[in-house]
Simulated scan of single mutants.
Amino acid sequence: MRPRIVALVAGGAFALAATLTAFTMLVGSWAPQNGVRTTGVAAVGGPFTLTDETGRQVTEAELLGRPSVIFFGFTYCPDVCPTTLYEMSNLMERLGPKADRMNWVFVSVDWERDGPEEMRAYLQAFDERIRGFTGTKEQIDAITSAYKVFYERVPTGEGEGDYTINHTASVFLMDGKGGFVGTLGYGEDADTMLAKLERLAAGG
């Protein structure tokens, strides 16, 4: 497997922290009322066309009918992405059969380096039920715009074409109709995240 970039540049790390703070303020905490999440923010989610880790085209229609847990990142990510995917894998194990009632998706924002083959190899380290979606720059820009996801490429100075990517680190929770219901925050308490996922699974 290709070597991974081992550190984020200082300016990039600051930008990521600022983005996470802003996103947390935008989304707010999980506080369902009569089973409905109300935020007062613009709709999150929408149509997309991407390619999964097998090379097959997928759209938003494939996720409907079951709740979805969606995380945006990239395979060269040195810390946030592998940490989040390991946490997701552990939560899936704790959920037991409930985890089978949901879609688990990792969307790469690295349209240049992450194709189906790279996604398939990378996801072997995590729960096998996590699917990997990727696409062209235009396709990634479309889905990140729909989900209000921030991402930006940051040159590392290690050579021509070398870069890392700052990106939103929250995990998106969507209901079976494709409606946004909340997030899992990076570094959030595992029991709190589990409780959110149990409510998501119960809500359908």
Score class of each variant (00 low, 15 high):
R2S: 15
V6E: 10
A10Q: 12
L16T: 12
T19K: 10
T19I: 13
T21Q: 07
T21A: 13
F23K: 14
V27K: 08
V36C: 10
V44R: 03
G46Q: 11
P47K: 05
F48T: 06
F48L: 02
T49S: 11
T51M: 04
T51D: 06
T54R: 09
E62C: 12
E62S: 14
L63H: 05
R66L: 15
R66H: 15
P67G: 15
V69L: 06
G73P: 08
F74Y: 08
Y76W: 00
V80F: 10
R94C: 01
G96A: 14
A99F: 09
D100P: 01
R101G: 00
F106N: 01
V107L: 07
S108H: 02
V109M: 07
W111R: 08
E112P: 09
G115K: 13
R120W: 10
Y122T: 02
I130C: 02
R131P: 00
F133D: 09
G135L: 06
K137G: 09
Q139G: 02
Q139V: 04
I140R: 06
A142V: 03
A146P: 06
A146S: 09
V149S: 02
Y151K: 01
P155I: 11
P155M: 09
P155C: 12
G161A: 10
K177Y: 04
G178Q: 05
G179A: 14
F180W: 01
G185S: 03
D189V: 09
L194A: 10
A195D: 11
L200D: 04
